[in-house]
Design a protein around this nucleic acid. Structure first.
Lengths: 340, 340
DNA sequence: CTGAAAGCGCTTACAG
DNA sequence: CTGAAAGCGCTTACAG
């Protein structure tokens, strides 16, 4: 079956290809009845636009790019990125955009990918994950003038969807305080990251407004073993914290083991909350309270921001809603067991 | 900065655009030295090809499409698809192909997507997941003559990457027999699916070759509760099976609970193996033996097959290697505890 | 071996 | 309001 083109329609409707293009794209410069007739003919001939031709002519690709670090073995990242992509794709699809995905082996690879994509006009804009301080991507994107949206934190020269980490930490702390906790520790990966800093600052500021002491235990690692080690160290202190907040559930799992090894009852003598949720939090004993955020929603918002920028809006920033604590056994009751 | 085109190079090198195109695409019809000169000029001017123009002219998109069911809440599917996409993308990238992703809300949506993609020439071929018996996608793809590769099972009119489910079941059964098991049950979702049928047949055939009795417990559900219920039913029999094979780890989790509720020691009085692995299998007590397959590898193979077909190879089928059982506490020792 | 020309299917100034 | 024409950047018959 041969492709139906604009020319075929023009011939059939006895008008010029220009007129057909105008009618099909709902542009002014054509009478209502001519437009009507053209649309009817186009439909009857089963015409559908050729996106490639459109892209070439309009020098717009209707494609946005996403570069993510090539997955190591973290199932956390897998779940996050998959759902993030699902969200992106959902919004992009309804806005008539495509998604281009690249797995970067290094920062250099990522930078090179942006350069190439833009040089070849493969994308109209990009989504940038894990913004860092002094991020080399920031200056590249700016000098390229490649439209971008950063995820989680702001980035100079790009739009952004902010994750509201600060408020999230306050929610967790409030939850624990309501369980009669007056001292807690935050166990996280490298405390130097933008994300981590923001969370820690928020936690400390909140602690000043209530009776609450805060400790930070950070480790460059995200392994179960790191969670075990850091928790053990905390327990050896003169006044161990009454509650532990873990950056993710893998660290929490290690922490749990440390509690058992020290004959402490989690959920009673010491409360636990994880900043990331996963099926694991539900199946361990006791089940672990966790923050649940929907990466798909984040993806949808990111796509909305970027698409609006590509449609001519100035770069801008939006914030995610503050997520809630899903309360499970590890923090269901008050400290030392009086029911909440 | 203005785009460098083939015309610019032609002017600078004092040849025709045709010659430039030939040189750049390594086609015959041009002398070695001219080619050399053109390439030098192109490089010095920083030329890079415009894929859009190429696609329009060659009416080839260098894009393949993947439709997956819009995720419900299954983290199993999330992990699988993410890694599958990673694998696809890895091979596609090195073959200069892009990946287009669509999330289908229904079979109709999926069919419509194939029609649209092909009508608009958005893809050169597609990857089809979850082939079924009497699959409506099969006839559509055939009538469209849209090149396709089916994943896991064969599909008329498409290439395929087979998952080797039959041999996998034999591996599991052999493993259990080596642990002195002489009766087992397979607990799975709807037994009517192509996949399930193949596995069951394989298990039964193998059972004829050794001293082994096989039962099948199927349920339309994949919930933990389904695993619990089916396992409980099996335990109520006069001669309960000595080992349980679960289609995935969620079912296995329910099964584990059922054993505890019946005061049976998993890994000793009854052995367990899951056909899907996940971090959950490692963290539960006892840890659950599981089959580990790499969806990324599957994705790479799928991409290889499809790309080779698009390069002119006739449609063909390849098989994945048979995966191994990762032995954990739930089947580390012989039945009733004598160490293996 | 080499070049001038038409074409892929669309959009968009430009002139009526 | 309408149409003839040029152009997006490349490829590929076709003729020398």
């Amino acid at each position: 079956m041969k492709r139906v083109t604009i020319k075929d329609i023009a011939r059939a409707a006895k008008v010029s290809p220009t007129a057909v293009s105008f009618a099909l794209n709902d542009k002014p410069g054509i009478s209502a009845q001519t437009r009507e007739r053209i649309l009817t003919v186009a439909a009857s001939m089963g015409w559908s636009p050729n996106p490639t031709a459109r892209a070439l002519s309009a020098s717009k690709t209707n494609t946005i790019g996403l570069v993510i670090p090539r997955p190591n073995t973290s199932h956390l990242a897998e779940r996050f990125y998959f759902n993030f992509i699902v969200g992106l794709q959902t919004t992009l699809h309804s806005s008539n955009y495509e998604l281009l995905l690249h797995l970067a082996d290094s920062v250099e690879d990522e930078l090179e990918t942006y350069r190439l994509w833009w040089a070849q006009r493969k994308v109209d804009g990009v989504v940038v994950v894990n913004p860092q301080e002094q991020d080399p991507r920031s200056s590249l994107l700016e000098s390229l003038e490649l439209p971008a949206v950063a995820i989680g934190d702001s980035m100079p020269g790009a739009s952004a969807v902010l994750a509201n980490d600060a408020q999230m930490m306050v929610e967790i702390a409030k939850h624990l305080v309501s369980r009669e906790v007056s001292s807690l520790a935050y166990i996280c990966g490298a405390a130097t990251r933008l994300h981590a800093k923001r969370r820690i600052t928020s936690l400390r500021n909140f602690a000043k407004t209530v009776v609450l002491s805060v400790e930070i235990a950070s480790n460059t690692d995200f392994t179960e073993y790191a969670g075990y080690t850091e928790t053990t160290k905390l327990l050896e202190k003169a006044n161990p914290p009454q509650a532990l907040i873990f950056e993710n559930e893998i660290l929490a799992l290690g922490g749990l083991q440390a509690l058992y090894d020290n004959d402490l009852t989690p959920g009673k003598q010491i409360l636990l909350v994880s900043c990331e949720d996963s099926p694991i939090c539900r199946v361990v004993k006791p089940s672990i309270s966790a923050i649940s955020r929907n990466p798909a929603t984040l993806g949808e918002h990111a796509a909305q921001v970027l698409v609006s920028v590509l449609d001519g809006q100035p770069p801008h920033t939006v914030s995610e809603e503050t997520p809630n604590v899903i309360v499970r056994d590890s923090s269901a009751n008050n400290l030392n067991g009086t029911s909440h």
